[in-house]
Design a protein around this nucleic acid. Structure first.
Lengths: 183, 183
DNA sequence: GGGTACATGTAATCAGTTACATGATTTA
DNA sequence: TAAATCATGTAACTGATTACATGTACCC
């Protein structure tokens, strides 16, 4: 029964195709300016995944007869139901943090205060930039769908939280016992 | 040159072994009560990964001669240097959010307000529970290392942010145009 | 008409997960 | 001593990434 497991990317593809047929490249563009910001993956997956979904009967594939002979995918009724069932079910699955910076901080016992501060500043900076990206997004895509906008708010909150966290670390770096500088 | 890429899990293993030799099972236990909370993976990886690191010369493997003949891994000088180099470099890599709940919210156009609220409540609940876990952790492991404690603060901040986000969504669910209830 | 950027795709590899499986210890 | 639980490990699979590769359109 291994063929029956749909991953988040499966639903992501189904979700976009629920709005109408598209080629992998269409999907790539749509994703790039939306969910791609908080759930990214290489475009090759947008070629592989629809193929899998066709085998499961959730999508239909059609070759363009003209020009580039691109593959156009559309959702089947089965696919639409699978998507809606998934969407409907209030999931309790939790995201994991999986943050390289935090991992380094966790092992920071061995680091000098300066290094910890450098790490914190680098992270703060990166989060600031991501926050700018989100703000830019909000400004430049005024027609963004209501729900896209809602998800974007989570992005704001997320980045702001980490900016504050790292800024606090930079201001007061934790000190390993035996590693203190004479203050 | 594919064998030369170290993943976060590689560094995680190196980081623990930098403190002294351990078996995969030791690692499993250590991880379970620390980084595992924000970066989890099945224990099988803690058998596979050290083997890979041995091939790279970053670890050494020794079989116990007595009892269970378990494999004991210790870090080599090369390994220690690789770990410290990684640790030292202030990384700007950013975590991704990759949140199933947000993904559903993003596609929520098609949902009724009730369903959106149900989703938000489920997510809020899950984050509340995770927050409790963290608080419990802090209470029950008073000897936690300074840096573990610091990373834990990020966990608190993260959970609180999402609790607030979802609670806000539950209170004021976004409404798709054409989907409003007559209020 | 040559370069450059965008568009479109495939093949190979691998990290990570799932599933299975058995050995040792404790407890009832 | 049976059962349950903890400890320890392996094999197979596959989703996801990396790397490669070529086509088309536009611009100078």
């Amino acid at each position: 029964m291994s063929r029956s497991t749909l991953t988040p990317v499966s639903y992501l593809v189904l979700g976009w195709l629920a709005d109408g047929p598209a080629t992998p490249y269409d999907l790539k563009r749509k994703v790039a300016h939306s969910v791609g910001y908080f759930w990214s993956f290489p475009h090759s997956q947008l070629y592989a995944e629809p193929a899998r979904l066709v085998e499961l009967g959730l999508l239909e594939e059609e070759q363009e007869q003209t020009g580039r002979h691109r593959r156009v995918y559309s959702i089947t009724e089965t696919g639409r139901r699978a998507f809606e069932d998934w969407l409907q079910e209030p999931s309790s699955e939790m995201p994991e943090i999986r943050d390289i910076g935090l991992l380094k901080l966790f092992f920071g016992e061995a680091l000098s205060s300066e290094s910890v501060v450098a790490l914190a500043r680098a992270q703060e900076q990166a989060h600031l930039e991501k926050l700018s990206t989100y703000e830019e997004l909000e400004r430049t895509i005024p027609e963004m769908a209501t729900f896209g906008r809602a998800a974007l708010q989570a992005g704001f909150a997320f980045e702001r939280t980490f900016i504050e966290f790292w800024s606090e670390i930079a201001a007061h770096p934790p000190t390993a016992p035996g590693n203190e500088r004479s203050s």
